[in-house]
């Protein structure tokens, strides 16, 4: 086993570089990035400017929103947005990274050149995870730039950094990025099992929506079902994230668990998310290794 790992691992980096090249050159990557930038620009600049002009600079509504969106307090707001919305982009990007090979028939081209199926899938997984890491870092950097631009636009640039701010920012970025990996695994498994990027997106997004509905129903029923809800992936990610120091600091839903239901502590929740991740990825790779790649399979 160790011998096999030692022979297979060195060949993975070139495969990862291929996947990153493909991700970089694919238009949908930049469309997703453009959507994020446009959304952040809207939130940090347009909304603040509009609200200041309509509600007035002294109105409580404007002051509350302005406080949450200033540099650097706006990082907490960014982190909440990322935790709540980035998963949709993650599902789209990862599904296309994994599933689109079937549509183009390039899967057989790749595997006929020598890499093993496990190497091929691990390279895709690593590339997907790296893309998410880079993407979330870019999200913070672009967000910071837009926060500053927003501050300058309304004449409110006056940054104040609390103690440990940069360390907390880093740890929260790490935590938010880590919990997104469960959605990487869901999209990865859906796209590879269904042999289609589009199907992966559909199933991945449907899973998130249905899970949310069922989870809320279970929490509403309470009792045993309520306890079952704490093991749902999204509930587990919330368990990991609600202790975020940044959100505590800006006092936006931070530090307190959302109301209703029961919760696992952050570390057991993180452990369970890791287990789900391993099972989903392991299952997808196992099935992929067993599958015949005939033209009839859509490749």
């Amino acid at each position: 086993m160790l011998n096999r790992i030692s022979t297979e691992l060195p060949t993975i980096p070139p495969l990862v570089s291929i996947e990153l090249l493909k991700t970089r050159k694919r238009r949908v990557t930049w469309i997703c990035f453009g959507i994020v930038v446009a959304f952040l620009a809207f939130m940090f600049i347009a909304v603040r400017v509009l609200m200041k002009s309509t509600a007035g600079a002294d109105s409580p509504e404007f002051m509350q929103m302005d406080a949450a969106m200033r540099f650097p307090t706006g990082f907490g707001f960014l982190q909440i947005m990322e935790a709540q919305s980035a998963l949709y982009l993650v599902i789209v990007l990862v599904s296309l990274l994994v599933g689109s090979e079937y549509g183009w028939g390039t899967l057989r081209l790749a595997l006929a050149r020598g890499p093993s199926r496990t190497q091929f899938m691990l390279a895709k997984l690593i590339a997907a995870m790296l893309t998410i890491v880079i993407g979330t870092a870019a999200f913070l950097i672009v967000g910071a730039a837009l926060m500053i631009l927003g501050d300058l636009t309304i004449g409110a640039f006056d940054p104040v950094f609390p103690d440990r701010f940069w360390l907390d920012l880093f740890l929260d970025w790490l935590r938010t990025t880590a919990v997104l990996m469960i959605y990487v695994a869901i999209a990865f498994a859906a796209a590879s099992l269904l042999r289609s990027g589009g199907a992966g997106i559909g199933v991945g997004l449907a899973f998130v929506v249905v899970e949310q509905i069922v989870m809320n129903l279970f929490i509403g029923f309470g009792g045993t079902l309520g306890k079952v809800a704490q093991y749902f992936p999204t509930r587990l990610t919330e368990s990991v994230l609600f202790t975020s120091r940044l959100t505590v600091w800006i006092d936006v839903e931070g530090g307190q668990p959302p109301p209703g239901g029961t919760w696992l502590d952050p570390w057991p929740a993180a452990g369970l998310l890791t287990l789900y991740f391993v099972v989903l990825i392991g299952g997808a790779i196992w099935v992929f290794n067993k599958r015949d790649l005939t033209s009839g399979s859509g490749t």
């Binding site: 495969l15 291929i18 090249l21 050159k25 183009w104 028939g105 081209l109 006929a112 050149r113 020598g114």
Partner: peptide, 30 residues
């Protein structure tokens, strides 16, 4: 397979990559 070059049915390439980039991909797969 590192000693084999193959076209299986129609040649399959990534439509959003250039011809050169597609060959770069194939070279790295090999």
């Amino acid at each position: 397979l590192r000693r084999v070059g193959a076209i299986i049915e129609a040649p399959a390439f990534y439509p959003y990559l250039s011809g050169r980039d597609n060959l770069r991909v194939v070279a790295r797969y090999s």
